[in-house]
Amino acid sequence: NKFNKELQWATWEILNLPNLNEEQVKAFIDSLRDDPSQSANLLAEAKKLNDAQA
């Protein structure tokens, strides 16, 4: 389904953001699992944090 694909994509993207530490990655992945419908928003937040920590 749509959420499953978005969840998989967001998870992959977050795992590959180079500037997030392990705790941050875990927190984003946990949030994705808690509410897959928020995957686009969570991915945007993760990318923003990744850029800020570059």
Rank of each mutant, 00 (worst) to 15 (best):
E13Q: 15
L42S: 02
S31M: 13
R33I: 13
D51Y: 14
L49W: 05
K47W: 14
L15E: 10
N19A: 07
W12D: 05
E45I: 14
D51V: 08
I29G: 01
Q53P: 04
E23H: 10
F3T: 14
F3D: 15
L42V: 13
A27Y: 14
E23K: 13
A10P: 01
N4P: 13
E13R: 14
K5N: 10
K26R: 09
A40F: 14
A10V: 12
E13P: 01
I14G: 01
P18A: 12
L17A: 01
A46P: 00
W12R: 04
F28G: 00
A44L: 13
Q24H: 03
L32V: 04
W12Y: 07
D30E: 12
A27R: 12
R33D: 04
K5F: 04
L42K: 05
D30L: 15
I29M: 08
S31V: 07
N4W: 15
Q53K: 04
D35F: 07
I29L: 13
E22D: 12
N19D: 04
L7V: 13
W12S: 05
Q53L: 10
L49T: 06
N16G: 09
N4I: 11
A27Q: 07
I29N: 02
N1Y: 01
V25L: 06
S39Y: 15
A40E: 07
E13D: 04
D30F: 14
D34P: 02
P18R: 06
S37Q: 08
Q53A: 06
A46Q: 00
K48H: 08
V25A: 11
I14H: 01
A40G: 06
W12N: 04
A10T: 08
P36T: 04
Q53G: 05
N50E: 01
E23D: 12
E6R: 03
F28R: 01
N1E: 12
A54E: 10
D51K: 12
E23N: 10
K2W: 15
D35E: 07
Q53R: 04
Q38K: 13
D35I: 05
F28E: 00
N4G: 08
A54M: 11
K5Q: 14
S37D: 05
S37W: 06
Q8M: 08
F28I: 04
W9D: 04
T11K: 06
L7G: 03
N16E: 04
L20A: 00
A27E: 07
N41S: 11
K47G: 04
N16W: 04
N19I: 01
A27V: 10
L20M: 02
P36N: 03
L17N: 01
A10D: 02
N19P: 00
N21M: 11
L43Y: 08
S31A: 11
Q8K: 13
D35V: 05
K5E: 15
K48Y: 11
K48A: 11
Q8R: 07
A40S: 10
Q24P: 00
Q38M: 09
L42P: 00
R33G: 07
K5S: 10
I14K: 01
N41R: 12
D34W: 12
T11F: 12
N41E: 12
I14V: 06
A52N: 08
I14M: 05
V25D: 00
L43G: 01
N50M: 01
K26N: 09
K26E: 07
P36W: 06
D51Q: 12
F28H: 01
V25F: 03
A52Q: 10
E22P: 11
N19F: 09
D51F: 13
N16P: 00
Q8V: 08
K48Q: 10
V25K: 14
Q8S: 05
I29S: 03
A40W: 14
N4M: 08
A27T: 10
N1A: 02
